[in-house]
Design a binder for these strands. Structure first.
Length: 827
DNA sequence: GACCTGCTGCGGTCTG
């Protein structure tokens, strides 16, 4: 490409009254020189950038040496634009088409996800448009076509929008593998990513580019972001625990009434249902002006809500992360976050949903649901000011995604082992893939591994006489294309009115607890359950205002380290009497009770509390490391204490700390924490950490759950044909069958190893657990025997999570039960 | 005196 076309490009923009920013010029310059990179786009919509990039390519195409006069300019795909969401693809397509008359009148600009008619697909199969907007899944599908290579032969540039959303998960790995393939076909390929603010932008660039050289361009437009807190009117009477936060209902309703369109973010779907219902009850005149939006509602319902937001018809929408991304809702003026945002990145993302136009600022208001969240709010506001934002880690060589990719490539023209290995290692996540691991994956798709040799449906890929691996059977190819992707969703039950219109879906377990005639709250309405037929629950509208609320078994996100540290820092200041912010002044009375009865946990000192109650002996410890670390830590300590003296513990955790409870109130195990500094160090040792963690938790059961997802991605378990979903139970049965077969007959199966690794790394956050142990060993323990639960301890006592761990000998247990019986029976 | 968590995203077949 030739840089002399940069000035005309700028003139082109200027003629349309579009401002050109210095960082934009930087991207153009770099891309024209054939460089790849990452643009840190802290503000602005991807679709605007799409126009910039298309303009750049167009200028370059015009600059290329003219084709012989008689010939038409060559057609074919030039720019591939990847977005993580279909809604974004549609939005970007619209923006590009609006400028296409001026930009490139003879270019076709299409989206692969927009028009999925067979005519459109056939046209694209013959000849791709010059600009194609699509998703990671669709790109993989294209790579699975036999003629894939020729479709991409003219490709100049790939841009990955919202890369921060993809890089940390398996969808991002899928993108990495696809890019490695495109780069191999087209070594000059220019790849750019657009990313929101992350704690590790350089790494984000490296992951995208497979470690190859690239630039990082800083988008200079820094949006003003205002974060504040809705302080409870009577902080002293605000609950010490709880997550629903309906005490704030009136205050929230007043906020909504006093401002323009508002998004009300909730952390869970059932919470959103309850808030929507309660807001309507508090302001009946808002019927039709407020709406509900979450991932289990039917697409048609959600589309209606999104349109209403866009057109400015709605005053407020109560939602979950379903509205984190997606098209821009210009009218949104305010964002409310009910309960903990759990992380700074998420908070900024949500804040950015408001004031979505140049020059306008974003405003987010935190709504605490219990007292300690005031502390989190104070920390969050500070962290936002300092832009202390979480990093994202790319998964490390997930073999399920690799196995899927092998079949995709075998379908898309076939591969030779050594060549594909080299290509795969060009993807960041597989840069350290070992030869044995490669051989294992190859063997797995060729024979199904050791234990499945007898089953032809697992011989998915076979080498021909020339050593080219291909898929030998059409049916296998069809099945594979139907299950491409890394998103595994649980089978759920459709909810429909008797007349047939769809409302959404709930989990099977919830419906199975309902009897005919029972009422439940879903989609913002009270429904009466009628019957279940073929994975569909039929309902009718019900009168009344009460009903059970469906619970969905979703992910459990822990408080991020950044936010936890920010909260702990606020405690450090409070310990020295510094209460500078409104949040901290509101929580002051509570923290003073905490200090009076015990002490404040601070970054330099671990607080341990002990309490005797009717339930037994409690120890509370507050490392502020997030709930998943606390689960591992609590189980580990219980295990290590149990090694010294047989005991049985109940465990409770939250994001701030954990509780160990032993029913034996007279036992002296708790005093281990009260010994002179050094005695507890052995408990906090990170020696034999892995063994102890595995021994202390039911790791097999956790792995089995993980394995369900892995089996789906690796293509072991087929989700069923559209319109006839297998029930949850069927899916579980087949994946657990594989799990058992592998464990018994194929212990070296690397998918099993991967399941265990994912549990340790993602569910228990072993790395963070190790860091926490190191911190705990270095800090002094401040030990307090208290007469009653402190504010921090109370929150733990009401946590419902109770995990039994018993290293106690059966006889001791029976003796204890007898003692209790005698006590209960009286003299 | 206080309480009752758990997100999001995509894709596809067959017939005549």
């Amino acid at each position: 490409m030739n840089s002399r076309f940069l000035p005309p490009l700028e003139a082109w923009f200027a003629a349309r009254g579009w401002q050109v920013f210095p960082f934009q010029r930087e991207v153009w310059q770099a891309a024209q020189e054939g460089q790849s990179g990452l643009l840190h786009a802290s503000t602005g919509a991807g679709k605007t950038y799409a126009v910039w990039f298309a303009a750049l390519l167009r200028a370059a195409a015009l600059a290329a040496p003219a084709a012989p006069a008689a010939r038409k300019p060559p057609r074919g795909l030039r720019l591939l634009w990847l977005t993580p969401m279909r809604a974004l693809a549609a939005d970007t397509l619209r923006a590009l088409q609006e400028s296409s008359a001026m930009l490139a009148p003879d270019w076709r600009i299409e989206s692969r996800t927009g028009d999925t008619s067979s005519a459109a697909r056939a046209r694209q199969a013959r000849q791709l448009p010059e600009v194609l907007i699509t998703t990671p899944e669709s790109l993989s599908l294209m790579l699975s076509q036999n003629a894939a290579r020729s479709q991409f032969e003219r490709l100049d540039m790939v841009v990955v929008d919202e890369w921060h959303e993809l890089m940390g998960n398996k969808r991002g790995v899928q993108v990495q593998l696809a890019l490695a393939r495109l780069r191999r076909w087209q070594p000059q390929l220019v790849v750019w990513g657009l990313s929101a603010t992350l704690g590790n932008l350089e790494r984000a660039r490296d992951v995208l580019l497979g470690g190859a050289h690239g630039v990082l361009v800083e988008g200079a437009l820094r949006k003003q972001i205002l974060v504040d807190t809705l302080i409870p009117e009577h902080p002293a009477r605000f609950p010490w625990a709880g997550h629903l936060g309906l005490q704030m209902l009136e205050a929230v309703a007043r906020e909504i009434a006093g401002h323009g369109a508002t998004l009300v973010f909730c952390n869970t779907r059932s919470q959103a249902e309850l808030w929507y219902q309660n807001l309507l009850a508090a302001r009946p005149d808002w019927a039709g002006l407020i709406a509900l939006h979450h991932g289990s509602l039917d697409k048609e319902v959600r589309d209606w809500v999104e349109l209403g937001l866009k057109q400015g018809r709605l005053r407020a929408v109560v939602c979950t992360s379903s509205l984190d991304l997606g098209v821009d809702f210009l009218p949104v003026e305010r964002v409310l976050q009910i309960g903990s945002a759990k992380g700074i990145a998420r908070l900024l993302q949500r804040a950015g949903r408001s004031g979505h136009a140049p020059g306008r600022s974003s405003r987010l208001t935190l709504v605490p649901t219990h007292s300690l969240e005031l502390l989190e709010a104070a920390g969050a506001i500070q962290a936002v000011k300092e832009r202390d934002i979480e990093a994202r880690r790319a998964p490390d060589k997930p073999l399920d995604v690799l196995v899927q990719h092998l079949v995709t490539v075998a379908l898309g023209g076939g591969f030779r082992s050594e060549e594909l290995l080299e290509e795969v290692r060009g993807a960041w996540s597989y840069r350290a893939l070992g030869d044995e691991e490669w051989q294992w994956a190859l063997d797995f798709v060729a024979r199904g591994g050791q234990s499945l040799i007898a089953y032809p449906e697992y011989r998915r890929v076979l080498p021909d006489e020339e050593g080219v691996y291909r898929v030998p059977d059409q049916a296998i190819g069809r099945r594979h294309r139907m299950s491409i992707g890394t998103i595994v969703s649980d089978a759920s039950i459709q909810v429909k009115f008797l007349r047939g219109s769809r409302i959404g879906s709930v989990e099977e377990s919830f419906i199975s607890r309902l009897k005919q005639g029972d009422h439940f709250l879903f989609g913002g309405r009270i429904l009466e359950f009628v019957r279940v037929h073929e994975m569909t629950a039929y309902v009718r509208r019900a009168s009344g205002s009460r009903g059970a609320v469906p619970r969905w078994q979703g992910g459990k996100m822990p408080l991020s380290s950044e936010l936890a540290h920010a909260a702990l820092e606020q405690l450090r200041r409070a310990a020295t009497g510094e209460y500078a912010s409104a949040e901290m002044r509101a929580i002051r009375p509570l923290l003073e009770i905490q200090q009076r009865w015990s002490a404040l946990p601070t970054p330099g000192q671990t607080l341990a509390e002990s309490l005797r109650s009717r339930e037994g002996r409690h120890v509370f410890i507050y490392p502020f490391a997030g709930r998943s670390v606390h689960i591992g830590l609590a189980a580990l300590l219980a295990y290590r204490l149990g090694q010294r003296k047989p005991a049985s513990f109940s465990i409770a955790v939250n994001d701030y700390g954990f509780e160990l409870l032993s029913a034996d109130a007279d036992s002296d195990w708790a005093e281990y924490f009260d010994l002179p500094h050094g005695a507890e160090v052995a408990l906090f040792s990170s020696e034999h950490l892995l063994e102890d963690v595995l021994a202390s938790l039911n790791a097999a059961e956790l792995s089995q759950r993980r394995f369900r997802e892995i089996a789906r991605i690796a293509g072991l378990v087929f989700g069923g044909y559209p319109g006839q979903p297998k029930s949850q139970r069927q899916l579980q049965a087949s994946s657990s069958l594989f799990f058992e077969v592998f464990r018994k007959h194929d212990a070296g199966n690397l998918l099993l190893t991967q399941a265990q690794r994912e549990v340790l790394e993602q569910e228990l956050e072993l790395g963070r657990l190790r860091v926490t142990l190191d911190e705990l060993r270095q800090r002094a323990v401040s030990w307090h025997e208290t007469a009653r639960p402190t504010p921090f301890g109370f929150a733990l006592m009401v946590e419902r999570f109770r995990e039994k761990l018993s290293t106690e000998k059966l006889s001791d247990r029976i003796a204890r039960m007898l003692r209790e019986l005698e006590k209960a029976a009286g003299p």
